[in-house]
Design a protein around this nucleic acid. Structure first.
Length: 588
DNA sequence: GCCGTTTTCGGCCCGACTGTTTTCAGTCG
């Protein structure tokens, strides 16, 4: 076994152990414990192997003394004797079946035994064959229906292997918005809200869930399933319906009477872990929670609003963005919830690409500086900075580069004289080259108000090298912002790894701001690192990285990332007025 | 096996759905 297991692999192993215990009818809480440990690992914000390196395994909630010891053995020796003993005698094929929707540990084991399927490698093929031959329906406890269900689930799984993508939040927003507008046209619709990860503003969304409050549920459901962009009806019932859209994404609708709308919102906004924790919390007060409301004994109380629901648990309303069970319930209990930053707090944007011809090696913007300045005024900003990519090094001499920037400066000055409603800054987005040098001549820096330093090449360096490269780039006193700090592109690439402890320490000391890039494919810094930055007292700046006017309106996506990272107004530099910000722009 | 501002022992989230059942076990979100 490989000792350098990633989180997904460790989670998978723990899941298998849970399944093994389940088949052996062990203490059910032990099964739950392994199951929870698996989820904890899967959702961990750092690699578990790294945590082990630092002796911090136990900091993951759900990993206790026993499992930590097993994982220690795993990372040291590549195997866990106790696990091996446990799995010995169980057919390897059963663990393959666990990936099939509708098959749990018990069913997986039974299928292996009855159908004599043992080898993991051919397990799914054999199961599919058995189903097609009608062998499953003959087994005790199975029937025709479960046989076709299994067959369908196998086909789904095979499809899912090729394509099971979550969509970017911005795409989900657009789809949801269209449906919301449509649903509002029904006179039976009283209230309407997005649910799930869409409402919590997670960077990517699986299915789109929407709630409607109504006194005429069947009317709303019928209206919904007649949505013109529907491709296929998946299911329809008295409490909701699911449809598949032509674009391929699934939309679930849930309807509820207005009196119980609040508890339903709370339940379906999630997250699952937030809700589980909240139910445990309630249980200690003798209350039982569900999507229907709060039960005390046998008496159920319904809730029209989420605020009332949380209030009756003795908690303030918790913003959906932080309902991830990462301490929000404890903090809410103490009355110390953060006052999260809002889009209306934002007073400027430091990362804009105009079409000024700086002859860069990366892409230019589509609109003029003037157009962008007008748009910024419309957005109510006090200041913006133009930060086009640096002129390409390979195609220009040092003098040519400086001349280009001087000319742009002139253009900015001219614009300033005709536009006094907003402060205009002369920035530049400069590549940090693989050796850590900035891709801009030293003599040119005096011409700039600030630099956004970013990585745009050689993404594959290891953590140590990349950290050295980034820190070297940040050394320069003109650098104020580290642009899209992890380099991730959602659904395309993971981004590089950095030693964040070092980066945070450096940024804090030098008052360098980490960018939260609002571009929907980036959303970089990611929310979990925003949280770390906040804890470390590192300031951030939310920028749109706009290459066109319309993109300047994407700021809310950056703000939601900041909110998911528990950032308050004071953590975000571009909430400052120009007066206060001006003083901080100069490095000391 | 995990965990603790009512607990280091004694608890451990809730309800719906489904299929194959005569009262429920397994799975899911």
């Amino acid at each position: 076994m490989n000792r350098n297991l990633n989180n997904q692999e460790v989670a998978c192993l723990l899941q298998a152990i849970a399944a093994a215990y389940e088949v052996k009818n062990s203490n059910r809480f032990k099964i739950i414990a392994y199951d929870r440990a698996a989820t904890a690992v899967e959702n961990a914000t750092s690699e578990v192997k790294d945590l082990w390196d630092d002796g911090k395994l136990r900091t993951l909630p759900g990993i206790g003394a026993s499992i930590a010891q097993h994982l220690d053995e795993l990372f040291r020796t590549g195997k866990v004797k106790h696990f091996n003993r446990l799995i010995k005698g169980l057919p390897p094929a059963m663990f393959e079946f666990l990936s099939i929707s509708g098959i749990g540990a018990k069913t997986a084991y039974k299928l292996c035994q009855e159908l004599e399927i043992k080898r993991a490698k051919t397990a799914l093929v054999e199961l599919e064959k058995a189903a097609k031959k009608g062998k499953i329906a003959l087994l005790e406890g199975f029937g025709e229906k479960s046989q076709t269900d299994i067959l369908e689930a196998i086909l789904d799984f095979k499809k899912g292997r090729i394509k099971k993508k979550r969509m970017p939040l911005s795409y989900a927003d657009a789809v949801a918005q269209d449906i919301i507008v449509y649903l509002k046209k029904s006179p039976a619709t009283l209230k309407i809200d997005p649910l799930g990860s869409l409402k919590r503003r997670v960077a990517t969304v699986g299915d789109i869930d929407i709630a409607v409050a109504t006194k005429k549920p069947t009317e709303v459901v019928s209206w919904f399933v007649a949505y013109p962009k529907k491709k296929k009806l998946i299911e329809k019932g008295p409490t909701g319906a699911s449809i598949l859209l032509k674009g391929g994404c699934q939309v679930d609708l849930r309807v509820q009477k207005p009196e119980a709308y609040g508890s339903m919102l709370q339940y379906f906004i999630g997250s699952k872990h937030h809700n589980i924790h909240l139910r445990e919390f309630a249980l200690k007060k003798g209350l039982s929670l569900s999507e229907h409301g709060i039960k005390k004994g046998k008496k159920l109380k319904e809730y029209a609003t989420e605020e009332q629901f949380y209030h009756d648990l003795g908690l303030p309303w918790i913003p959906p963005e932080i309902r991830e069970d990462t301490g929000e319930i404890e903090v809410a209990q103490k009355g110390e919830l953060p006052n999260l930053v809002k889009t209306s707090d934002i007073k400027g944007d430091f990362h804009l690409h105009s079409n000024y011809p700086l002859e860069p090696s990366h892409d230019e913007g589509k609109n003029s500086m003037e157009e962008m300045a007008m748009k910024a005024i419309e957005l109510g900003y006090e200041y913006i900075g133009f930060s086009e990519h640096n002129p390409s090094l390979s195609h220009h001499s040092e003098k040519q580069i400086i001349d280009l920037v001087k000319r742009k400066n002139g253009a900015v000055e001219q614009l300033k004289s005709s536009c006094n409603k907003i402060t205009l800054l002369n920035g530049l987005e400069v590549d940090i080259r693989p050796n850590g040098q900035l891709a801009f001549p030293e003599k040119g820096f005096d011409l700039l108000d600030y630099v956004v330093a970013s990585i745009h090449s050689s993404f594959k360096m290891n953590k140590k090298e990349m950290t050295r490269r980034v820190l070297a780039g940040l050394e320069h006193p003109k650098v104020k912002i580290l642009g899209h700090p992890t380099g991730r592109k959602l659904g395309q690439r993971e981004g590089y790894e950095l030693n964040w402890e070092k980066v945070f320490a450096f940024c804090k000391k030098a008052d360098i701001w980490l960018e939260i890039n609002a571009w929907p494919d980036r959303l970089d810094l990611p929310d979990v690192l925003v949280r770390e930055a906040v804890k470390n007292g590192v300031k951030m700046v939310i920028n749109t990285d706009s290459h066109a006017l319309s993109q300047m309106g994407l700021m809310p996506y950056g703000v939601s990332v900041a909110r998911r990272g528990w950032a308050e107004k004071s953590d975000i530099i571009n909430t400052l007025s120009w007066l206060k910000l001006n003083a901080r722009l100069k490095r000391t």
